[in-house]
Design a protein around this nucleic acid. Structure first.
Lengths: 170, 170
DNA sequence: CACGATATTTTCGTACACGAAACAATCGGG
DNA sequence: CCCGATTGTTTCGTGTACGAAAATATCGTG
């Protein structure tokens, strides 16, 4: 049959089990990145996001990444301590803190080889194309099936609470 | 070219994005469990596993759950401090520490309502049956596509290192 | 028997991740 | 103009989660 990792598990538990293995693999990869390139996956994610748009503020960045502000704040603390990002209070609205990537930060992400950046994409790319497509669609669907209020969407913050779910058919 | 960060992305990055949302939802649910029932998902997972088989030792439990020994050790520390599990050195082999669930631990997991136990299953069960099946199979496949040495299987520890992979071996 | 190799657990340091509370700044009424 | 409500950031405490190193116990071989 279909390979049971644990003695007796129905199709319900298998997915959860696999999910834990996947997140663990991602975590282990992040630590490897940290050992070899002095940067972790979440840090890399923040840097890449900041690189693309410079108008970022903490709360915006957090909602884009689907992380809480305190989590992202901690990551930024470490990045700022190493001079990889800059924080500066906005002049128009002094509540806001504008985030930016520094030349040193830019240099660092340029130095990390493509292959090390994202182990998810590597594992993902080893699957047949049709399965890749199917899997990402199913993951997106599953994500939507968790209580919606738990993971407020990025767009909610900039367009106001959505009346409905947009992109059901992309 | 492709990365995995922002809302509008190809099917490669969407899966990663969705994965982060899912793990975040699971984490948030675990904290809710902690607030309302003084127990977290990983702790509940350990208790349930210990409940089923009493011969558990730390390293065995860790590999079953696909977590590192230090992680599980920390979880057990908290459970033991609350008198929910017991540790006792094995008499035959004093290196081993036998783990067991206490009556208090049993009582606690019995008191947590079914509905609170696993938000994954709830979200999962909201999907059509065929999609459930498909998703868990794809997740299992994806898990296998991560570097295998990163996630040593449970059976490796009790049956010795596998000579080969069960099914799809390219 | 001694002693190194192995097996197991524990400890330590670090990073992530969250919520709650504290803090800071802006804005709208009265 | 002050003062409460709101928005945004930082701080704090806790719980995962990992690897490396230390500590403990067993076992095999000389």
């Amino acid at each position: 049959m279909q390979h049971a990792v644990l003695p007796e598990e129905g199709s319900d538990g298998r997915g959860y089990h696999a999910l834990r293995r996947i997140t663990r693999a991602l975590d282990v990869h992040s630590r490897k990145l940290h050992r070899e390139w002095k940067i972790t996956s979440p840090q890399l994610l923040c840097l890449h996001t900041l690189q693309k748009e410079s108008v970022h503020t903490l709360s915006l960045l957090a909602s884009e990444l689907h992380l809480s502000v305190s989590t992202v704040n901690g990551i930024l603390d470490r990045l700022e301590a190493r001079g990889l990002v800059s924080r500066s209070r906005s002049l128009e609205d002094q509540r806001k803190v504008l985030l930016g990537i520094t030349p040193a930060g830019q240099a660092l992400i340029d130095s990390v080889p493509e292959l090390m950046r994202d182990s998810y994409l590597r594992a993902f790319s080893r699957m047949p194309a049709d399965e890749q497509m199917l899997l990402s669609e199913l993951l997106v669907k599953l994500a939507r099936h968790f209580d919606p209020e738990i993971t407020p969407a990025y767009h909610d913050l900039i367009t106001g609470p959505a009346t409905d779910y947009p992109e059901d058919r992309p």
